[in-house]
């Protein structure tokens, strides 16, 4: 019963949050972990091949998605879940430039769709 109530409450929170992008989704400890990844990535990129740059940015995107998915609104959830599922697979095709670019383009379209869901502009043009 308590579980069901919690599920309903979380569903309500989601609905409300979808119109409220000021929603807090990141804890301080998580933010610091993400900063550690970003700052150390910047340092190691000074000595690593240029094509590792996208890999590090995607790792950060995947890590951030994992951190916030649980507390995110409906408007972001699908995008975040896909990031968690698809980004690790993308690393493995890094050597196939066409496949890598296509997968990155697909993520770019997904982020645009997510932005539109959070905005007052509709995703589907009338």
């Amino acid at each position: 019963m308590a579980v069901k109530q919690a599920a309903v409450a979380s569903e309500c929170a989601r609905k409300e949050a979808s119109t409220m992008s000021e929603n807090w989704v990141l804890k301080e400890g998580e933010a610091v972990e993400l900063l550690a990844l970003l700052i150390t990535s910047a340092r190691i990129q000074m000595e690593e091949p240029a094509h590792y740059g996208p890999l590090r940015l995607l790792t950060a995107a995947e890590r951030l998605s994992s951190m916030i998915a649980e507390r995110s609104s409906e408007a972001s959830l699908e995008f975040l879940t896909e990031n968690i599922e698809r980004i690790p697979e993308m690393h493995m095709v890094m050597s196939d430039v066409d496949a890598y670019s296509a997968a990155l383009d697909e993520r770019c379209r997904a982020v645009a769709a997510c932005l539109l869901r959070h905005s007052s502009i509709s995703e589907e043009p009338e």
Partner: peptide
């Protein structure tokens, strides 16, 4: 576990 990184060639 996923397979490792695909070979460049």
């Amino acid at each position: 576990a996923q397979p490792g990184m695909r070979a460049w060639k």
